[in-house]
Design a protein around this nucleic acid. Sequence first.
DNA 1: ATGAAAGCGCTAACAA
DNA 2: TTGTTAGCGCTTTCAT
Lengths: 357, 357
Amino acid sequence: MYYTGEMAATLMEIARRTGLSKSSVSQCLRSDGPKSHLFRPETRERVRRIAAELGYRPNSAARATAYGRTGSIALLMSINPIRSSLFEGLLCGLHDELHRNDMQLAIARMPDEELSDDQRLPKILRDWCCDGMIINYTDAIPAPMKAIIREHQIPAIWINSKQEHDCVRPDDFGAAQQIAQRLIELGHRRIAFSDFSHGMTYADPHYSVIDRRGGYERALADAGLQPEVWASTDDERIPGDQRMAYATAKLSARDRPTAVIGYSQNDLFPVHAGALAAGLTVGRDLSIATFAPAPYTHLGPPFATCILPEEEMGRSAVEMLMQKIADPAGLLPARVLKMHFNPGGTCVPPSGDSTED
Amino acid sequence: MYYTGEMAATLMEIARRTGLSKSSVSQCLRSDGPKSHLFRPETRERVRRIAAELGYRPNSAARATAYGRTGSIALLMSINPIRSSLFEGLLCGLHDELHRNDMQLAIARMPDEELSDDQRLPKILRDWCCDGMIINYTDAIPAPMKAIIREHQIPAIWINSKQEHDCVRPDDFGAAQQIAQRLIELGHRRIAFSDFSHGMTYADPHYSVIDRRGGYERALADAGLQPEVWASTDDERIPGDQRMAYATAKLSARDRPTAVIGYSQNDLFPVHAGALAAGLTVGRDLSIATFAPAPYTHLGPPFATCILPEEEMGRSAVEMLMQKIADPAGLLPARVLKMHFNPGGTCVPPSGDSTED
DNA sequence: ATGAAAGCGCTAACAA
DNA sequence: TTGTTAGCGCTTTCAT
């Protein structure tokens, strides 16, 4: 039943050794207990010491049974590839805030196939084993999942997704608009937007695919400029090994763009290489900018970057979830997080050699 | 206590409605229960139906209290930046195998500072709340963590780290050796190894930093070739914005290497760009290869890559952990996972224009 | 300042 | 084939 031959220490054992009762020991051991301050400091100290000697570890399952809260929340994700880069910071933020609340994080990934079969539901949905959920499903949200959460009124916060309520997400539209405006202010007239990975080839893309491009187009429209989008379409796909050549061609043209905004860093690498091939130096002859958790720094001057507020999103989500757990009925307004623009070293005025309007 | 005004359904409630006893209901509901097959199919069906109607979700805390197992395992990580790329596949592997065992994954990240202060230990170490741990600490392993795991004899498997026992890791040495041998077989005589990020600047680097370079050097030595390492040293740092220039210089020399092995993809981007700047075409004039979860495909032909067996590592770790939970005393021999080499499109014979020995 | 007792929801050994 | 009983380790209420 336990790891060792000897049983693990319990409250009962400590009670025996200290001559106190089980409930007294329980109180003494918890600094937050409703009556813990009623005990003599010396008593509490004695209890602590014995507990330490015995290597006592509270059985959190038993506590959860009695207390009615598990002390853990779950992060739900699709089993389909997530942008793992988004993960590191998010985890930090979640951890930070959870730790402040002395709670744990469980991770659950859901293959869509299994959700149809009730028997094979992930434990996390089948059992009652967490106090709330943070949902990182951005699209193609499995119906059974939503149903279960609704029926059982499980406190849940959506992240990285556009929802009216109980939701946190970065302001992708605003960020893209901001980048484009900065470039326009610097004097750029031809600004391209590259999104090789998505383009219009997905029926139901992540909202950021729409919004980043949307913000860019809005900024250009407001300034009376023509947008130029480099993206795969249903008619014209741009596979990985052709992107660099594509960029080279575009950047070799007489009316080439003087700046390129990439949907992500991955959309900028081929642009960077294409610029080199076209004889241009990024950060001098060509400005580039993108969206990422942190500026890319291994390829010359740091890429100008709108910083994805991953940590903040994690912290906000937990914060909101705590409120939701306290008051499951209340609807929380969506939080839209501003992104900070780090100009890095790749955002400069257009150089003289390019065609000015 | 519960989410809704109405209490959540319990075994007791189902017992009441079916006219059965609590324990009968418990057995009927679990297909794996020791006595579940003793009940009439019609009884079991009735119980199932009522449970479903009531929206019954087993309280896994209560179950854990009674059964003595939590049904979850924890992944321990440092709070310091991990290679997040390593994360996606690992998570898949862990999830796969855990799901087969109907278990859950908890994530815990440990800031080193807090570990000194006993009061602020992460819940995961302070409480008894998982059946075992998978440890992703590769270096600078916090002493209190090790102590707790040892004292409480918590079943634990180390991943991504060199340990004698209870450990799974990729064969970085062998993989590097394999890459180098392939290049040598192709006719390359000058093969460089680039590790801009680490080099010799860290006192206690991840074992792969040593082993990848080591495997490379061994292969070259065996073939009687001179190694050429591009790495930061204590005397000569190569910051991010100088790497490309560094590579350009090296690749412009008359006795330039005809192939470069990068410690990671990030070490290859500057090389790729440097090659362009030096007028070389990667995959024709220059071969490159590296180690990664998957070949990089957004920059011309896919990078030749030794595939990090993340999923397999995750699965193996869980598998071993299950054994360890069953028999905590037994020592499991370390598993060293072979990597598969995917030649992609950047591994070709040296072209004629380079200096042949 | 401390203890006794009841109960959380579940499992398992033993009866019937 | 089903019920009874006794826990699991903890928290909380109510006495003292």
